[in-house]
Every structure is written in C-alpha cells, then in structure tokens.
C-alpha cells in the first residue's frame, strides 16, 4: 500500500516553497544555488508521483531530462561563482554592487 498522491504533492510543494524562500532571503551565493536545486528536485518528486498516478512514463522521462539540465546548469553556475570569487574574495550577493546606480 503506497501513500496517496496528495502526500507526494504536499511534500513537493513544501520543498518548492523552502527553495523559493531560500532564494529570496539568503545572501550566500552557494546557498541560493542550493535552493534553486531544491526547487528543481521538488518538481522531480511531483513529476514521478504524477507519472505513477497517471500510469504514464512521461513523468519519469521528464525527470531524466531535468536531472541532466540541472547538472549542466551546476557546471556553468559553479564556473561563474569561481570566476567571481577570484576577483573579489566574497560569495555574499549583497556585496555585489558595482552595477547598481
């Protein structure tokens, strides 16, 4: 007996909300980035749950692509973070202010 669909969806919504709040309130670049990953994985949980509920493979299919995209994004994102940290010894977004006017 597996738990009903709603449980998975509530879990996924909670994960997604934690991710959104993390992006909005935290100032550390890596934590913000982790929060984005959390949002993507919240989507994955919901996709698998929906796929199981609908008895279709599309959901799991989608998850494979999402994981791939997340990996590509992480590679590029960490590269950008590294380039910036070399110039200025900080990972705090509130100190990235030279473009503000």
């Amino acid at each position: 007996m597996s738990p009903p669909l709603e449980w998975y969806l509530i879990f996924s919504a909670l994960l997604f909300s934690i991710g959104v709040v993390g992006v909005l309130v935290r100032r550390h670049v890596l934590i913000i980035f982790m929060s984005v990953e959390l949002m993507l994985n919240a989507c994955n949980v919901a996709l698998v749950a929906f796929g199981r509920h609908l008895d279709s493979l599309t959901g799991q299919n989608f998850v494979v692509f999402v994981i791939t995209v997340a990996a590509a994004e992480a590679a590029v994102g960490l590269g950008i973070i590294l380039a910036l940290a070399r110039h200025k010894d900080t990972v705090d977004v509130s100190e990235m202010d030279i473009l503000k006017q």
């Binding site: 670049v29 950008i80 910036l84 977004v93």
Partner: peptide
C-alpha cells in the same frame, strides 16, 4: 568584474 557580476545575477 562587471562582467562576472552581471553573469552571476543573470545565472541565479
């Protein structure tokens, strides 16, 4: 540095 910073904000 402007380029790095712009890329970071765009990426996040």
């Amino acid at each position: 540095r402007e380029s790095n910073e712009g890329a970071m904000k765009y990426f996040l």
